[in-house]
Write a protein that binds this DNA or RNA. Structure first.
Lengths: 186, 186
DNA sequence: CTTACCATGTAAGGCGTTACATGATTCA
DNA sequence: TGAATCATGTAACGCCTTACATGGTAAG
């Protein structure tokens, strides 16, 4: 396991919680990691193969009838490998916001166009918030339960709430300023 | 210009403001776009070549003595091309936060390790905030000036401030909760 | 019986970074 | 004169997505 990717750790971490299939992993990611670490099938299945080949996880056939189904479980080696990575300080925290890039060049088209961009962004943020809030509420109660992992999930969830709420405040203020600038020209 | 990358537009947009060299572009990006759209030399120079080949920008030799120096200017075609892109709704707004990924799996190592991760993150955020605040203040005055582009730069800057301040609030709360959980175990 | 979801996987290619290589110029 | 900064560029490769391909199963 010479060149480990972040992907490896993401999948290893999820499998530490419980054995899962590639399909399950995708669903879990979409409900939990998606905000700060999205992954597609195109990287999940190949990663599962290499992790298996390296003895980090073990595959077991749990097919029902005609449908292929493979569940993966972390090995001790895999868990130790993950833990070692968790100890070292995090590398990059990056964003890639097309909306902001377009806004930065907003002067090329004027305020109406930028306001439209912000409105689209705002709508998406609201939709994400609606998905996140019930999860956050559920974790608020669960985080006091026996499973100590819930506290960590709760914290990442709170990060999302803080982020999205900040986004919405910014959207409101930005639209206001753009409209003012727009009206001054009339 | 069949398959345009986002990179193309980022560079085209910067050159709309004023003619620049590849080196200048890098510096500008590090001061303005870096938060939501980082770029390295490894993509700047090749992109400048293809944009030139496609007639989106024009290169002019402004070498002084022995040092090669090439300034690029947007053409009408290039500006129109950028404007067309600015009109269509933004695609993806993504994050890739290694810190959050590690925190999500924090239960594998326990609260002390997660607190350390958060502290490193917090330190970086504070450093970024210190860089951003003077820029924001400068743009506050400039945004009322003749150059209407400043308003848009100001807005993206405000986005950064809102984001970082939210990060700091979250850091404080997350550390508190982790310490509480930690003390309960003693 | 058909729609939605379950389930696995691959091929091609997009999109970018890191590290290297090279040298001029400015400033203390 | 040495360090920092200016300035350009390439090669190798990392890392992931999109789109495709295929079919089983459950529920209405």
């Amino acid at each position: 396991m010479a060149n480990a990717k972040k992907m490896d750790y993401a999948i290893l971490g999820l499998l530490c919680h419980q054995p899962m299939t590639g399909y399950d992993i995708k669903k879990w990611i979409d409900k939990s990691l998606r905000l700060f670490w999205g992954i597609s099938y195109g990287s999940i299945y190949p990663t599962l193969s290499t992790l298996t080949a390296n003895g980090m996880i073990s595959a077991s056939d749990v097919s029902t009838n005609e449908r292929t189904k493979i569940a993966y479980t972390v090995t001790d080696k895999g868990r130790a490998y993950l833990q070692k990575w968790l100890e070292v300080p995090a590398g990059k925290n990056e964003m890639r916001y097309e909306t902001l890039l377009k806004l930065f060049f907003g002067d090329e088209l004027g305020p109406e166009s930028s306001i439209r961009q912000i409105e689209v962004f705002e709508k998406k943020v609201r939709a994400e918030l609606e998905l996140l809030r019930p999860i956050a509420e559920r974790l608020t109660t669960l985080s006091k339960s026996a499973d100590s992992a819930h506290l960590y999930h709760y914290l990442t969830c709170q990060f999302g709430l803080e982020l999205y709420e900040g986004d919405l405040r910014w959207c409101a203020e930005a639209k206001k300023l753009l409209k003012e600038g727009f009206e001054q020209k009339l």
